[in-house]
Every structure is written in structure tokens, then in C-alpha cells.
């Protein structure tokens, strides 16, 4: 990696007794899409809001485009764009007015009509903010994040709460940013999002980065195992699953057993035999190829959305 455009060193942030960020460090290269992946409350938003200059860190060093977000003022704000997790606009503000209004605050401005077309908001240009759907509001937020043609774009959970189709539309937009070589820092708790969009991912849990790398590198950490999720009629005896042929690890989550197996066919045969012997019934069985979810489970013993 060349000179990083975002550099975070040993970052700490607490809210009263709650330590939201505990020694986070990472770097993002220019033109890279970097993801902070973690469950809700992991400290992702605190990190990104410190990088946006909206929060003051307790400790640690942060540089974005070579500037300190906290002290660089307008010079810093000119260089970044952001979609915040919790924000809104006045109900009676029209779509085009919102983009034009925010564009006027910057020295460098993108073309409003082009943004409206690019984000499929052309037909809604005169609609009030309160009349937009969730997806349209999010597309508007993305358009507003680009009104100053920023060097770095921060996207904090840009698809949270949106239905799958709208989420895919947002993915297309982010992929377009990626093709345009924009530096993007994205926070998410969706595995699919991180795997599809990010060049590199940092997995964050309890305020710490617990793994970092490209999605492929991270998935290789789960040792090429396949995840098998089974539901049974009755609970199993302790440790039985771990002794099955090919099983690398096994855990129970809310009545469901999750196995990681290097040899799935053998594991399934062994499981069925064992269930027959114990007079137990298989209610469901699903198999998944290795994903970042598996990496998270292996590292934390929990599922990402617990």
C-alpha cells in the first residue's frame, strides 16, 4: 500500500462507562473500498464519526487526506462526503433543492442535474423529502455525499433497514464509486455487502479490530471449511457433534447447531447415523460455502447479528 489516505492509530472513545472504541488501528489506500464489518454496537459508527470530524476521540491519532478531522475545519470538510447513519432533512425540502443547497456550501461542486440522473432521482426532483421512500431517501443521501466531488466518502450503514431490492440498487451505486476510483470507507453488518463491495475488510467487535484483510484472505482463515447448520427434534449429548467425521468446530446458537466441516459429505453421513442411533430426528439441514460470517463465528463464538 502506498501512502494511506485514511490512517487510524490506536483510537479510543468512551461514552461514560461504555468503551465504544478500544485501540482501533487501520489504514486505507487511495481508491480503495474499505469495510468496517461488525455487529450493532461494535464501535463502527463511533470510529467513522471520529473520522468525519463529528466526534472527538479520547486517545489516538487520525488522519484523513493528511489532515486532522478535528482541527482542520473547512479545509477538511471540503475533501470528504458522508452518508450518516441517523440523519434527516426538513420534510418540505424538495429533492433538487436539497442537492443544490448542500452544493452551495462547497467550493468544488458537482452538477446537480447529473447527480439527479445518476442516482435515479430525476423524476423525484420536485418531490418533498417527506414524500420519498426509504430507498429514495438513501439515494438522495448518497447524492448529497457527492455534491462536492469528495476525495473520501464515508458510508455509515448505507443499506440498513432497506429491502433487498433497494439494497442491491445501493450496491450498484457503490460499485460505480469503486469503478470511479473513489476512496470509500463503509460500515456494515451485512456479510454480503462487505464481501461484494469491499477491497479490504476490518472485522470489528466490542470496539476492537479482530481481523483485517481482503474478503478472500479472511475467508481462508476459516480453513476452507463448509458451514453446516442443522436443527434437530431433541438436543444432542454434549460434544457429540465435535467428534463427527470431518468436523473442525461446532457450536449451538438458539437451538440450532452450526458445524464447520472440512469433509461435508462424510460429516453428514456420520451425523445421520448418529441421530438414528440416538433415536433423534433431523428437522432441517443447510450447507454454506465459507463466508465472513464463519470468520466472525470462529473469532468470537457468536453470530454477526446476535
Amino acid at each position: 500500500m502506498g501512502e494511506p489516505i485514511i490512517q487510524v492509530d490506536d483510537l479510543y472513545k468512551s461514552y461514560g462507562a461504555v468503551e465504544a472504541v478500544r485501540g482501533v488501528s487501520f489504514a486505507v489506500a487511495e481508491g480503495e473500498v474499505f469495510g468496517l464489518l461488525g455487529p450493532n454496537g461494535a464501535g463502527k459508527t463511533s470510529c467513522v464519526e471520529i473520522l468525519e470530524g463529528l466526534r472527538t476521540p479520547d486517545r489516538g491519532k487520525v488522519r484523513v487526506c493528511g489532515l486532522d478531522p478535528e482541527t482542520s475545519g473547512d479545509q477538511f470538510k471540503e475533501k470528504i462526503g458522508a452518508v450518516l447513519q441517523s440523519t434527516a432533512l426538513p420534510d418540505k425540502l424538495r429533492v433538487k433543492e436539497a442537492i443544490e443547497l448542500f452544493a452551495k456550501f462547497y467550493r468544488k461542486r458537482a452538477n446537480t442535474d447529473e447527480l439527479l440522473r445518476r442516482f435515479q432521482l430525476d423524476e423525484k426532483r420536485d418531490a418533498f423529502y417527506s414524500h420519498l421512500s426509504g430507498g429514495q431517501k438513501q439515494r438522495l443521501a448518497l447524492a448529497m455525499a457527492l455534491v462536492n466531488d469528495p476525495e473520501v466518502v464515508f458510508l455509515d450503514e448505507p443499506t440498513a433497514g432497506l429491502d433487498p431490492q433497494v439494497r442491491r440498487e445501493i450496491y450498484d451505486i457503490i460499485e460505480e464509486l469503486k469503478r470511479g476510483k473513489k476512496t470509500v470507507l463503509l460500515t456494515t453488518h451485512y456479510i454480503e455487502e462487505a464481501e461484494r463491495l469491499c477491497d479490504r475488510v476490518a472485522i470489528v467487535d466490542h470496539g476492537r479490530v479482530i481481523a483485517e484483510g481482503t474478503p478472500r484472505e479472511l475467508k481462508q482463515k476459516s480453513a476452507g471449511t463448509t458451514r453446516i447448520e442443522v436443527r434437530l427434534a431433541r438436543p444432542l449429548s454434549d460434544g457429540m457433534l465435535g467428534r463427527l467425521d470431518g468436523v473442525a468446530s461446532s457450536r449451538e446458537f438458539e437451538g440450532m447447531y452450526v458445524l464447520h466441516s472440512a469433509r461435508p459429505p462424510q460429516t453428514i453421513v456420520a451425523l445421520v447415523k448418529q441421530l438414528e442411533a440416538e433415536n433423534n430426528e433431523l428437522q432441517s439441514l443447510e450447507m454454506f460455502s465459507p463466508s465472513l460470517e464463519d470468520v466472525f463465528i470462529e473469532l468470537t463464538g457468536r453470530r454477526l447479528r446476535e
Binding site: E52, K77, G81, A88, F105, Y106
Partner: peptide, 14 residues
């Protein structure tokens, strides 16, 4: 505006 999170959006630009 503050309660609805509108003000924080205006904090991002200069």
C-alpha cells in the same frame, strides 16, 4: 431540527 437529526447533516459541510 436537532431532535430529528437534521442539524447534524448540516455539520458535515463547511
Amino acid at each position: 431540527f436537532r431532535e430529528q437529526g437534521i442539524l447534524r447533516r448540516f455539520r458535515l459541510p463547511p
